[in-house]
Amino acid sequence: MSKKILTLLFALILLILPSTLFAITAEEIVKSMDALATYDTSYSTGSIQTTDRFGTKESTFKAWTKGTSESLIEFTSTAERGQKILRTKGSLYLYYPDAEELIRLQGAALRQSVLGSDLSYEDMTEEKTTLNDYTVTLDGSEVYNGHDCYILTLTAKTRQVAYPIQKVWVDKETYVTWKGEYSTSQGRLLKNMEVLSVMQVADRTIPKETKIDDAMKQDSSTMMTFDTLQINVSLDANLFSLENLTW
């Protein structure tokens, strides 16, 4: 009898073991999400479309990144042609060709809106280290638009973030964040984010079209679209320099 019980217990442990030994943690999911958006180097072109009840405004850009802390964005649309943003560790340099002016920003100024969109300079060029700013819990799973997703809740550790609470739906296979709900610390919904389409780049699934709706305003949204994205490309060593920024 006791042998049967032992055998039964052993079989039960064997059944349970894989799900406990190999269960992914919330932190590991977030690290995988960050890793998906972090490249050794990248070059992309795309657009930011801001829509309100008066219509749509579009700004187009070219962007280069290196690691988590160096990025350069050059705007190519008519109204902002030649304006550039260089992000380095701790500083942001803006170059306005009309005034031939080089402006260095630090601190809270990094949270300025870029070209009147719902995105800040920090959003566009941020270092992808989510766990530095947020604690995370795994709330469960759900199939969203045909994608099997983890549901995570991220709660801000500091006040220096735009959204104190983020609830995100993360693809279990590709770690694409298909959906996000961004709220105040009191739980009031501010923004809805949805990835509308993805593209395959070097064995990674990357968001191609991302739509951010303002939950507080009707008919207000921002669409960020990548037309091209190349990752781990060879970049000029001089790319992330003031010399190149002001050229």
């Binding site: 601190g107 809270a108 100024a109 949270r111 300025q112 809106s113 719902d118 735009a162 105040t184 501010l190 303002d214 507080m216």
Partner: peptide
Amino acid sequence: LYHLQDLGNDKTLS
């Protein structure tokens, strides 16, 4: 001196 205060929900005070 320059400071940008985020007032939440895209409202800012510079």
